[in-house]
Design a protein around this nucleic acid. Structure first.
Length: 156
DNA sequence: GCCAACGTTGGC
DNA sequence: GCCAACGTTGGC
């Protein structure tokens, strides 16, 4: 059982897209980075929990939780020349890129913004900061709980 | 296998 | 839209 953080640009695919999808389930496709690919192919397992993070917006934030319902399999969008993530180096007989399927679990009570993440000492060594620009990040159980706590509205 | 040029990510 | 920080590509 592992925890992850998946980045997405909400203009392309948001948490709401996932929540509104058939069975609230969608493939997490289009990852074209080798480090992230290795996580998807080798380490992300059914039952793992995932924070969905919205990037490239005025206030980047973790907005919701998803769970992995299908482990790494070939990302066939790489074989489709009409797809924006087409990669001629990948082929069905020798897939280069991988994806997993995720299912929406719930939105956070309130988004945990990058600003909050940056200012929380317990998250100072989060993979988000040690591996900038990576789109798939491992999250420790401690970090996961810290972020869950931060997502709850402060009681008076 | 080095490394310069180029492309991408993503916060600001 | 800028640009820093990376990753990738390709000539040599």
């Amino acid at each position: 059982m592992h925890y992850w953080l998946f980045k997405t640009e909400p203009s392309a695919f948001s948490y709401d897209h996932l929540a509104n999808a058939l069975k609230q389930t969608a493939p997490w496709d289009g990852v074209r980075n080798y480090q992230a690919r290795n996580f998807l192919r080798d380490d992300v397992q059914v039952g793992d929990e995932v924070f969905v993070y919205h990037s490239s917006i005025p206030e980047p934030a973790i907005v919701g939780i998803a769970k992995v319902v299908k482990a790494g399999y070939a990302d066939h969008t790489a074989w489709d020349s009409s797809n924006e993530h087409f990669d001629p180096k990948s082929a069905p007989e020798k897939p280069l890129w991988y994806m997993v399927d995720v299912q929406a679990v719930c939105k956070l009570d309130q988004p945990v913004t990058l600003n909050v993440i940056k200012t929380e000492p317990a998250l100072a060594h989060c993979s988000l900061f040690t591996r900038p620009r990576l789109s798939i990040h491992p999250i420790t159980a401690t970090e996961w709980q810290t972020i869950i706590d931060l997502s709850h509205p402060k009681s008076a």
